[in-house]
Design a binder for these strands. Structure first.
Lengths: 123, 123
DNA sequence: GAAACCGTATTATATGAGTAATACAGTTTG
DNA sequence: CAAACTGTATTACTCATATAATACGGTTTC
């Protein structure tokens, strides 16, 4: 069963997107693997303190993307092959890295300053 | 007059917040300095293709934060001292860096991998 | 001084996000 | 088999974001 221990809802972006992003990052990290069971909509909504519809929206979009399968009655589970995993990895990492680079460039920082900041805050 | 040449509206976060962030980053970068004039609400709304009220909301919040001053009739302009600049710099950089670090950690990357990715994509 | 700007304010509307309360059919589990 | 779960669907409501169309008074500028 997939765990949501390291997950907390934050402001600034829709909850269903935060859930999707969390799951995708866990997939990339290898914390979530092919065949893993997801918590049911009701259980996860109670766990996170949000509405079941919000979970349903996240799961629905994950299913549209082919990352999970739902069987109407049984629990949903993760479906992964190596191509999907590679695509996910490229998508998320590139998008994250490009975002931070564009933000840092706009603030006038040089590559070396960014790297030293990352070293400083990584702990 | 402050330029919005390097600015394009993106999805994912409210437009008025994107405008605020852009101005703050220009202040940190030194592109915007004390006394600079802002484009009028109407002019900027036409330039960006958004509603004047959206610009007004961004400017209003910047004024609440003490970063700009408005004189009812005349154009708004930027008001900066060294303390404010230092505060802004710390706020934005820390927040950006911490975001990327938390995202990278969640995807299971090590510090060295992140640094090498940044070097790769910086061009 | 008048026209053309400026900031400010108001009211109305549309959309998306999130909540809330149900309902129904399929699957597990005892 | 029956109870307790599942996924799925529907309708209604609140709130924030963004748009739209004005209006009023102050400042520049010619």
């Amino acid at each position: 069963m997939i765990s949501f221990d390291g997950f907390t809802i934050e402001d600034g972006s829709p909850i269903y997107l935060q859930i999707i992003l969390y799951i995708k990052r866990c997939i990339i990290a290898g914390t979530i693997v092919d065949g893993d069971e997801l918590p049911s909509r009701r259980v996860l909504s109670a766990l996170l303190g949000v509405n079941p519809n919000t979970i349903q929206k996240a799961y629905r979009l994950l299913e549209d993307e082919g990352l999970i399968q739902s069987h109407s009655g049984a629990k949903s589970c993760v479906v992964l092959d190596s191509r999907t995993l590679q695509r996910l990895r490229a998508e998320l990492l590139e998008s994250d890295i490009k975002n931070i680079i564009s933000a840092m460039k706009q603030t006038g920082l040089e590559k070396e300053e960014v790297i030293s900041l990352i070293k400083k805050y990584w702990e």
